[in-house]
Amino acid sequence: MDGVVQAWVSGWVVSRGAAPPEREPWGFTVDVGQVAQVSRHVFDALGDGVDEELVRKVAAGVTGAGVWLKVFQDPSVVGGWLGEGWWVDPEPGYLMTVPLTARQERPAAPAGYRLRTWSTGGVTRVLVAAPDGSLAARGQVAPTGATAVFDQIETVAAHQRRGLGSLVMRTLQAVAARTGAETGVLAGTPAGRALYESLGWHVEAPLTSAKFVGPDGA
Protein backbone atom coordinates (compact mmCIF):
# COMPACT_ATOMS: atom_id res chain seq x y z
CA MET A 1 0.00 0.00 0.00
CA ASP A 2 1.53 3.31 -1.08
CA GLY A 3 1.71 5.91 1.67
CA VAL A 4 0.96 3.44 4.46
CA VAL A 5 3.54 4.95 6.83
CA GLN A 6 2.23 8.46 6.29
CA ALA A 7 -1.30 7.19 6.86
CA TRP A 8 -0.24 5.54 10.12
CA VAL A 9 1.58 8.63 11.35
CA SER A 10 -1.30 10.94 10.42
CA GLY A 11 -3.86 8.83 12.26
CA TRP A 12 -1.61 8.10 15.23
CA VAL A 13 -1.10 11.77 16.05
CA VAL A 14 -4.87 12.30 16.04
CA SER A 15 -5.41 9.23 18.20
CA ARG A 16 -2.79 10.25 20.76
CA GLY A 17 -3.22 14.03 20.63
CA ALA A 18 0.38 14.51 19.50
CA ALA A 19 1.74 17.40 17.46
CA PRO A 20 1.25 17.41 13.68
CA PRO A 21 4.08 15.44 12.06
CA GLU A 22 7.03 17.31 10.56
CA ARG A 23 8.17 15.96 7.19
CA GLU A 24 11.82 14.90 7.02
CA PRO A 25 13.88 13.66 4.03
CA TRP A 26 13.75 10.16 5.53
CA GLY A 27 10.27 10.18 7.12
CA PHE A 28 8.55 12.08 9.93
CA THR A 29 9.27 13.63 13.32
CA VAL A 30 6.40 13.72 15.81
CA ASP A 31 6.50 15.62 19.11
CA VAL A 32 4.56 13.71 21.74
CA GLY A 33 5.38 15.69 24.87
CA GLN A 34 5.67 12.94 27.47
CA VAL A 35 8.59 12.11 29.74
CA ALA A 36 8.71 8.55 28.46
CA GLN A 37 8.28 9.70 24.86
CA VAL A 38 9.28 13.26 24.13
CA SER A 39 9.29 12.74 20.37
CA ARG A 40 9.60 10.00 17.77
CA HIS A 41 11.38 9.70 14.44
CA VAL A 42 9.46 7.48 12.00
CA PHE A 43 11.20 6.24 8.86
CA ASP A 44 8.91 5.86 5.86
CA ALA A 45 10.76 3.04 4.04
CA LEU A 46 9.65 -0.57 4.50
CA GLY A 47 11.65 -3.78 4.90
CA ASP A 48 14.65 -4.05 2.60
CA GLY A 49 14.01 -0.49 1.46
CA VAL A 50 15.18 0.88 4.83
CA ASP A 51 18.51 2.71 4.44
CA GLU A 52 20.99 1.63 7.13
CA GLU A 53 23.12 4.76 6.77
CA LEU A 54 20.12 7.04 7.21
CA VAL A 55 19.04 5.21 10.36
CA ARG A 56 22.57 5.40 11.74
CA LYS A 57 22.78 9.12 10.94
CA VAL A 58 19.47 10.02 12.56
CA ALA A 59 20.20 7.86 15.61
CA ALA A 60 23.64 9.44 16.04
CA GLY A 61 22.04 12.86 16.15
CA VAL A 62 19.81 11.96 19.12
CA THR A 63 21.21 13.16 22.46
CA GLY A 64 18.15 13.49 24.68
CA ALA A 65 16.52 10.68 26.64
CA GLY A 66 12.97 9.82 25.69
CA VAL A 67 13.38 10.08 21.92
CA TRP A 68 12.13 7.05 19.98
CA LEU A 69 12.90 5.59 16.58
CA LYS A 70 10.30 3.66 14.59
CA VAL A 71 11.93 1.67 11.81
CA PHE A 72 10.04 -0.78 9.58
CA GLN A 73 12.60 -3.55 9.70
CA ASP A 74 13.24 -6.44 12.10
CA PRO A 75 14.86 -5.58 15.50
CA SER A 76 17.58 -8.17 14.89
CA VAL A 77 18.67 -6.04 11.95
CA VAL A 78 18.11 -2.52 13.29
CA GLY A 79 19.65 -3.25 16.69
CA GLY A 80 23.05 -3.64 15.10
CA TRP A 81 22.81 -0.18 13.55
CA LEU A 82 22.33 1.73 16.80
CA GLY A 83 25.08 2.89 19.10
CA GLU A 84 25.48 3.28 22.83
CA GLY A 85 22.51 4.53 24.78
CA TRP A 86 19.77 2.88 22.72
CA TRP A 87 17.29 0.37 24.12
CA VAL A 88 15.75 -1.80 21.40
CA ASP A 89 12.55 -3.74 21.96
CA PRO A 90 13.59 -7.32 21.05
CA GLU A 91 10.07 -8.21 19.90
CA PRO A 92 9.06 -6.90 16.49
CA GLY A 93 5.88 -4.98 15.97
CA TYR A 94 3.95 -5.26 12.72
CA LEU A 95 2.61 -2.57 10.42
CA MET A 96 -0.69 -4.01 9.21
CA THR A 97 -3.55 -3.01 6.91
CA VAL A 98 -7.05 -4.23 6.09
CA PRO A 99 -9.67 -3.25 3.48
CA LEU A 100 -12.76 -1.62 4.99
CA THR A 101 -16.24 -1.89 3.49
CA ALA A 102 -19.58 -0.27 4.28
CA ARG A 103 -20.89 -3.72 5.21
CA GLN A 104 -18.51 -4.21 8.13
CA GLU A 105 -20.25 -6.29 10.79
CA ARG A 106 -20.94 -4.60 14.13
CA PRO A 107 -21.48 -7.45 16.64
CA ALA A 108 -23.15 -7.41 20.04
CA ALA A 109 -21.38 -7.87 23.38
CA PRO A 110 -21.48 -11.29 25.09
CA ALA A 111 -24.02 -11.81 27.83
CA GLY A 112 -23.15 -9.84 30.95
CA TYR A 113 -20.74 -7.47 29.19
CA ARG A 114 -21.55 -3.89 28.27
CA LEU A 115 -20.34 -2.26 25.05
CA ARG A 116 -20.14 1.52 24.74
CA THR A 117 -18.87 3.64 21.84
CA TRP A 118 -18.28 7.39 21.76
CA SER A 119 -16.44 9.94 19.65
CA THR A 120 -14.43 12.98 20.73
CA GLY A 121 -11.96 15.10 18.78
CA GLY A 122 -12.01 12.88 15.72
CA VAL A 123 -11.32 9.70 17.71
CA THR A 124 -13.91 6.98 18.35
CA ARG A 125 -13.37 4.86 21.44
CA VAL A 126 -14.85 1.50 22.34
CA LEU A 127 -15.21 0.27 25.92
CA VAL A 128 -16.25 -3.23 26.91
CA ALA A 129 -17.12 -3.33 30.61
CA ALA A 130 -17.12 -6.62 32.54
CA PRO A 131 -20.21 -7.78 34.45
CA ASP A 132 -18.80 -6.19 37.63
CA GLY A 133 -18.19 -2.88 35.82
CA SER A 134 -14.41 -3.20 35.52
CA LEU A 135 -12.50 -2.79 32.26
CA ALA A 136 -12.58 -5.89 30.06
CA ALA A 137 -11.42 -4.55 26.69
CA ARG A 138 -10.95 -1.31 24.84
CA GLY A 139 -9.67 0.28 21.64
CA GLN A 140 -9.90 3.41 19.52
CA VAL A 141 -9.78 4.51 15.90
CA ALA A 142 -8.84 7.78 14.20
CA PRO A 143 -10.18 8.11 10.64
CA THR A 144 -8.27 10.61 8.49
CA GLY A 145 -10.01 10.42 5.15
CA ALA A 146 -9.40 7.31 3.09
CA THR A 147 -7.53 5.60 5.93
CA ALA A 148 -8.21 5.02 9.62
CA VAL A 149 -5.66 4.16 12.30
CA PHE A 150 -6.59 1.62 14.97
CA ASP A 151 -4.83 2.15 18.29
CA GLN A 152 -4.52 1.06 21.92
CA ILE A 153 -6.36 -2.22 21.41
CA GLU A 154 -6.33 -4.11 24.71
CA THR A 155 -8.09 -7.02 26.38
CA VAL A 156 -7.55 -7.46 30.12
CA ALA A 157 -5.92 -10.82 30.87
CA ALA A 158 -8.84 -12.11 32.96
CA HIS A 159 -11.22 -11.59 30.03
CA GLN A 160 -9.15 -12.98 27.17
CA ARG A 161 -10.34 -15.81 24.91
CA ARG A 162 -13.95 -14.63 25.09
CA GLY A 163 -14.08 -12.87 21.75
CA LEU A 164 -13.76 -9.40 23.22
CA GLY A 165 -10.75 -8.41 21.11
CA SER A 166 -12.69 -9.37 17.99
CA LEU A 167 -15.71 -7.46 19.30
CA VAL A 168 -13.65 -4.29 19.76
CA MET A 169 -11.99 -4.57 16.35
CA ARG A 170 -15.18 -5.35 14.44
CA THR A 171 -16.95 -2.45 16.14
CA LEU A 172 -14.13 -0.04 15.30
CA GLN A 173 -13.90 -1.31 11.72
CA ALA A 174 -17.63 -0.68 11.27
CA VAL A 175 -17.26 2.84 12.67
CA ALA A 176 -14.30 3.61 10.40
CA ALA A 177 -16.09 2.28 7.32
CA ARG A 178 -19.10 4.50 8.00
CA THR A 179 -16.83 7.56 7.92
CA GLY A 180 -15.76 6.65 4.39
CA ALA A 181 -12.38 5.15 5.28
CA GLU A 182 -11.38 2.42 2.84
CA THR A 183 -8.27 1.05 4.57
CA GLY A 184 -7.46 0.35 8.20
CA VAL A 185 -3.89 0.72 9.47
CA LEU A 186 -2.32 -0.30 12.77
CA ALA A 187 0.96 -1.16 14.44
CA GLY A 188 0.38 -4.49 16.15
CA THR A 189 2.27 -6.55 18.71
CA PRO A 190 3.19 -10.23 18.37
CA ALA A 191 0.38 -11.01 20.82
CA GLY A 192 -2.19 -9.15 18.73
CA ARG A 193 -1.07 -10.30 15.30
CA ALA A 194 -3.07 -13.54 15.30
CA LEU A 195 -6.27 -11.70 16.21
CA TYR A 196 -5.79 -9.11 13.48
CA GLU A 197 -4.95 -11.71 10.84
CA SER A 198 -8.09 -13.67 11.77
CA LEU A 199 -10.03 -10.51 10.89
CA GLY A 200 -8.38 -10.12 7.50
CA TRP A 201 -5.46 -7.85 8.36
CA HIS A 202 -2.22 -8.19 6.39
CA VAL A 203 1.37 -7.55 7.53
CA GLU A 204 3.05 -4.84 5.44
CA ALA A 205 6.37 -4.82 7.33
CA PRO A 206 8.00 -5.62 10.69
CA LEU A 207 8.48 -2.69 13.07
CA THR A 208 11.40 -1.94 15.38
CA SER A 209 10.86 0.36 18.36
CA ALA A 210 13.99 1.85 19.89
CA LYS A 211 14.29 4.38 22.70
CA PHE A 212 17.28 6.55 23.58
CA VAL A 213 17.95 6.16 27.29
CA GLY A 214 21.37 7.84 27.46
CA PRO A 215 24.90 6.45 27.83
CA ASP A 216 24.24 5.33 31.41
CA GLY A 217 21.05 3.51 30.46
CA ALA A 218 18.93 5.46 32.93
Rank of each mutant, 00 (worst) to 15 (best):
residue 6 Q to F: 02
residue 6 Q to R: 09
residue 6 Q to T: 11
residue 8 W to F: 06
residue 9 V to K: 00
residue 13 V to L: 02
residue 13 V to N: 00
residue 14 V to Y: 04
residue 15 S to I: 00
residue 17 G to L: 04
residue 18 A to T: 09
residue 18 A to I: 02
residue 20 P to T: 09
residue 22 E to P: 07
residue 22 E to K: 09
residue 22 E to I: 12
residue 23 R to K: 13
residue 23 R to H: 10
residue 26 W to N: 06
residue 27 G to R: 06
residue 28 F to I: 08
residue 29 T to H: 11
residue 30 V to I: 03
residue 32 V to I: 13
residue 33 G to M: 03
residue 33 G to S: 06
residue 34 Q to G: 07
residue 35 V to P: 08
residue 36 A to P: 05
residue 36 A to D: 08
residue 37 Q to P: 05
residue 37 Q to M: 15
residue 38 V to P: 03
residue 39 S to G: 13
residue 40 R to N: 12
residue 41 H to A: 14
residue 41 H to T: 11
residue 43 F to G: 08
residue 43 F to C: 13
residue 43 F to M: 12
residue 44 D to T: 15
residue 47 G to M: 10
residue 49 G to T: 06
residue 50 V to I: 05
residue 51 D to R: 10
residue 52 E to I: 09
residue 53 E to N: 12
residue 54 L to S: 13
residue 56 R to H: 07
residue 58 V to G: 01
residue 59 A to D: 00
residue 60 A to W: 05
residue 62 V to Q: 09
residue 67 V to L: 10
residue 67 V to M: 02
residue 69 L to T: 04
residue 70 K to R: 11
residue 73 Q to T: 12
residue 73 Q to N: 11
residue 74 D to T: 14
residue 75 P to G: 09
residue 77 V to Y: 00
residue 77 V to C: 02
residue 77 V to L: 10
residue 78 V to D: 02
residue 79 G to D: 03
residue 80 G to I: 04
residue 80 G to Y: 03
residue 81 W to E: 01
residue 82 L to W: 01
